[in-house]
Design a protein around this nucleic acid. Structure first.
Length: 121
DNA sequence: GTGATGACATTGA
DNA sequence: ATCAATGCCATCA
């Protein structure tokens, strides 16, 4: 399914020091309703190698905590290494999306659409 | 084919 | 603010 090819490109485009949500990735990939599939794909390493999966969090900024990393605190450490403040909440580790959230412009979305088309996906 | 599952999101009380 | 209910859809058994 080319959705995953698209999702891969989107993930690779998440800026250093920023965090993106599953829904955001799904949206930019052209499938607004596939947020769950994004999570599934990342969990199974379906997007291939070299994906900055630690920059992907849910809509509330919670680090989902699934053990797709070496250790449970790996994601937190990676994010802190990129300058993001990660704080503990009753639900788990969390980042402030107000500050670190990946802000997409409409131009970004259009640029992706073009990139997909020229890549034949 | 059916039905369950899930790194999710949105809405309404 | 929190919580439950609902929608969602690609996988997988």
């Amino acid at each position: 399914m080319d959705f995953y090819k698209r999702a891969r490109l989107v993930c690779l485009a998440i800026p250093y020091g920023n965090a993106a949500t599953y829904g955001q990735i799904a949206l930019l990939s052209g499938k607004p309703k596939n947020a769950r599939q994004v999570g599934y794909a990342l969990n199974r390493g379906r997007l291939g190698e070299g994906i900055p999966a630690h920059r992907v969090v849910n809509a509330r900024g919670i680090l989902s905590g699934a053990e797709a990393f070496e250790t449970s605190d790996m994601q937190k450490l990676l994010m802190e290494a990129e300058g993001m403040k990660v704080e503990w909440t009753p639900d788990g580790w969390k980042v402030d999306l107000k500050r670190y959230g990946w802000k997409n412009t409409m131009e970004d979305a259009l640029a992706f659409r073009e990139a997909f088309e020229s890549a034949g996906i």
